[in-house]
Simulated scan of single mutants.
Amino acid sequence: MSSAIELIVDGYARLKDRQSLEDLRTHRRRLERDLKARTEFDCRSSIAQIEEDIAAIEAGLQTLPGPTSG
């Protein structure tokens, strides 16, 4: 079964909504940065999931025509 982020990315890609995908990627990168800055908790599994999300988002962006920022 597809993960939730893959379904979301697929929907945005079908709509050719590059801006929403870029916004989603920016949000995930911010979450990743914030979790990496935490020292009081072990956030490795959350960070790994966010990195997988970012990879899925970037794959979706690659399917769209035009330049990819980021």
Rank of each mutant, 00 (worst) to 15 (best):
I47C: 01
S20P: 04
E6T: 01
F41G: 09
I50H: 05
I57H: 00
D42P: 01
R38Q: 15
S20Q: 04
Y12S: 06
A13F: 01
R25Y: 11
L24Y: 08
G11V: 05
R18D: 06
A13I: 04
R38Y: 12
T26P: 06
I54M: 03
D17L: 06
L24K: 01
A59V: 11
D17Q: 02
E52S: 15
L7A: 09
R14F: 03
G11P: 04
Y12E: 00
D10F: 07
I8A: 00
R14A: 06
S46A: 14
K36Q: 10
I8C: 00
T26K: 12
Q19S: 10
Q49R: 11
R30D: 14
S46K: 08
K36V: 10
E52K: 10
D53K: 02
I8W: 08
R33N: 15
F41H: 12
L31S: 13
S45W: 12
D34M: 15
A55S: 10
D53H: 09
I57P: 00
C43F: 07
S46R: 14
E51P: 00
L21Y: 02
L31M: 14
L15E: 01
K16E: 04
D10T: 08
R44Q: 13
K36A: 01
I8H: 07
L61H: 08
L31Q: 15
K36M: 14
L35N: 01
R18W: 06
D23G: 13
E51L: 01
H27T: 15
G11D: 05
E52N: 11
D53A: 13
R14Y: 10
S46D: 14
D10N: 04
L15G: 06
R33I: 13
R33G: 12
E32F: 14
A13Y: 07
L21Q: 05
G60H: 02
D42M: 09
R14K: 09
E6Y: 06
K16D: 07
D23R: 15
A13G: 04
A48F: 10
E6P: 05
A37N: 14
I47T: 01
I57M: 00
A59I: 02
R29F: 13
I47M: 02
A37S: 15
L24F: 03
H27N: 11
R38W: 03
L15A: 01
L15D: 10
D42F: 09
L7S: 04
C43S: 11
R33H: 13
K36S: 09
L24V: 08
L7W: 11
T39A: 14
